[in-house]
Design a protein around this nucleic acid. Sequence first.
DNA 1: GCAAATTAATGATTTATTCAAG
DNA 2: CTTGAATAAATCATTAATTTGC
Lengths: 205, 205
Amino acid sequence: MSPATGSSRWSPTTEQLMILEELYRSGIRTPSASQIQQITTHLSFYGRIEGKNVFYWFQNHKARDRQKLRRKLTKQMQLQQQQQRQQLQLHHCQLNQDITNHFVAYPPCSTTQDFPFLTSPTLHFQGGAANTSEQALNCKWSVHNNQQSNLEEKREMTFYNYGWTSLVDVNQTSSCCTRPLKTLDLFPLTTTKINEDCTTPPKKL
Amino acid sequence: MSPATGSSRWSPTTEQLMILEELYRSGIRTPSASQIQQITTHLSFYGRIEGKNVFYWFQNHKARDRQKLRRKLTKQMQLQQQQQRQQLQLHHCQLNQDITNHFVAYPPCSTTQDFPFLTSPTLHFQGGAANTSEQALNCKWSVHNNQQSNLEEKREMTFYNYGWTSLVDVNQTSSCCTRPLKTLDLFPLTTTKINEDCTTPPKKL
DNA sequence: GCAAATTAATGATTTATTCAAG
DNA sequence: CTTGAATAAATCATTAATTTGC
């Protein structure tokens, strides 16, 4: 559960969080690899942290920001519609009343006088107050510009399972799902269900 | 467009594709990092290929498989419903006809004889032919089991932008969005829009 | 006060959608 | 139109807040 280092998932310290939020506010949304690296390095001063944590943090923060905004807009719209309806109803009411009054107080066809409800407060749509252009400063350069020369035979590449999962250095045998590794255990090309080798899923039941 | 090496995106050779498909058929859906590495190494014999290509291939293949299946099922269901409707309509028709016949051919209240439409072919629901359990062999071990010892100060870590985007070796300065790099250009913590440094977004309009 | 029980936040994964090359 | 690549949305899972009964 707590193997020594701590718990199973990163939880940011206050400083880390503050800095991340500051960066976010400053416009960073999807930091590039090197940006992530820099941020990680910097933040690691305040506590244990990995690149993927930074990566995920921005991803989640952005998404939840969007979502929050969406909800707010939705609610606002509903509210507006409601107000609109109410206004219309009021309007209508007023109209009837006025008509009644008119036909009560005035003779059937007086001079075409202004009805008071024509100057009743109208509805103002004040939509679009939210800055929807949140990716204005999307600094993005194509992958292909900075792909490392994969000429090097034995690249020290480390990569992920999916997204950021399991940042594994492939060079050191990674215990599971591959026997001590002769190199190509994966390619007998039989229909053996390769994955079944996995013996110890550390998931607690 | 074709800087020297070739085109901007990987396109698998026939052999690569065959092997990938074989692996897929053999049950692999979301290969782990080391599996990806092995596959990549193996496939690189047949042509230029990177880990992320393998990663994406499996991701896309799985997704599109599912999607294809979904569509098939949908179509099947629609078809079934249609057939059902037709059957019912037939049934109904038949019923009317039979009733008519009955009242034509027989006296108003003969013995309660079987109507032929009672033995008309009924509908058989044969749903669930598709194997929905496609993630049966999900060999997944927790990230924490094989996290490399991040004791090493200067890890040769390379990582991505998002998911697999821009596999960048951080050690070699990556040209864009970071000036020649003194180390921490990112942290003046002013509200400068950091990303605006990016001068050459090679995206063609 | 203080844990056990619930609920709300949020870190981490997976799936769906979209973009764009060929 | 297919499919590699990238991004966004949905979901899962764990941790922190919060509540509740003692």
